[in-house]
Design a protein around this nucleic acid. Structure first.
Lengths: 216, 216
DNA sequence: CGTCTCGTTGACGAAGCTCAAAATAAGTGG
DNA sequence: CCACTTATTTTGAGCTTCGTCAACGAGACG
């Protein structure tokens, strides 16, 4: 089993692979965060997935397709195991339980992707961002005296790329929320002061702020 | 093996399950087309996937989640095999090669979903529609004397739901293309007269029509 | 021939993208 | 610690795409 794997450390900001590269290997994330993204012609990006421990990246290599359809970049320092598509199948045959694991992972990812499509079709930027922050809170949130800190570096650019909008729009919304006392920025990280406020925005609860119903 | 499966025929328009239903079974499509969709509060819908022979529907049941996150509706008359999540795992254990199959299917689906997210983030309605039609051509296209017929019933509503836009916008674009002699409607089906025209729209080729470059 | 679904078209407005510029924060080397 | 450089964020103004509301036309079907 050992020889099939190839362990590697990737520094923050480095790329595991770029869209269009020959898809020869797939990666299992052991530690850290990897973002999977796609670029537009104009240089903007969408983040399709933020992978953590146990996640599969570049799975397309399993299919024997020619090229990676997306780019993978380390969001933090990362440790990964990489293997070829062939070795992957070998591994599945040897340890059938792993196949079950992979299926589970893929199903979750698919559900998440569908959720994103749904949101992009129907929900406006503000709400998409609110939902994103709530998800980030459950994944990276740490209680502090002042609120919940999302303990990962997230720039406005990242937020925009994760919600399918522009840097400017993301900034505007964050800035508005800051004025309302909902969030705070702390060294590139986001501090949520009133988690409940975001639930109100994400779902359609009244809250006590600004515009009430949108259903005239 | 036989007793694990439960074969069923579903008539066009009927539902396999609705979003929110208890997710007790998953389905393998034997014949016909099933659309997987989600509704907005306002009653609009997005089509997340159009499943054909060999496809997996309601896979979420495998995870043991409580509810289906989407709705599945027969686009044509359909034959499906259904089984419980438990039986699914049983099946995987008995026929490990099936696991490989499922992984392959899920990876393709995930790639497609990512492609959709990318398009919704960066591309405008017209181009999304053009790409959709090209995909439909490769899947359901049949050469005829007048062009390529997409041999499946697709209303403007369907087109809108598949591209994440509104019925009106889809209609406007189709109508414009009709005037340009690119498409024709034939009993709820779409006839593509100039496939190459769509490639020009989908990619960013000049063609000889309307607005040229958008990159000033 | 009436009814129903589907498609077309127009007018209007708003969300959010683009372009532009300035302000702030974060690093860096001395 | 300060001066300087670079990255990030904020904010404004104008404009475009697209969604919304509304009305009408056309085909299908009993």
């Amino acid at each position: 089993m050992a020889p099939l794997f190839h362990l590697r450390t990737v520094r923050q900001g480095s790329f595991l692979f770029h869209e269009g590269d020959p898809a020869d290997r797939l990666y299992l994330v052991a530690e850290g965060e990897v973002k999977v993204l796609k670029h537009s012609l104009g240089g903007q990006e969408v983040i399709l997935h933020l992978a953590s421990h146990g996640d599969l990246i570049g799975g397309i290599a399993i299919l024997g397709e020619q090229q990676y359809p997306a780019t993978a970049q380390a969001q933090t320092d990362v440790r990964v195991a990489s293997l070829t598509g062939q070795d992957f199948w070998q591994l599945m045959r040897t340890y059938p339980d792993m196949a079950a694991n992979i299926i589970t992972i893929l199903l979750s990812r698919l559900r998440q992707a569908h959720e994103t499509i749904h949101q992009m079709a129907f929900e406006r930027v503000e709400r998409r961002l609110a939902r994103l922050l709530l998800r980030m809170v459950t994944r990276f949130g740490e209680r502090t005296g002042e609120g919940v800190l999302i303990n990962i570096v997230l720039t406005r650019h990242d937020l925009a790329a994760m919600t399918g909008t522009t840097l400017e729009s993301a900034s505007r919304v964050m800035s508005k929320w800051h004025k309302q006392g909902l969030v705070e920025s702390r060294h590139r990280k986001i501090l949520i002061r009133k988690p409940h406020g975001f639930v109100e925005i994400a779902e359609d609860l009244p809250g006590q702020s600004s515009s009430a119903g949108h259903n005239p």
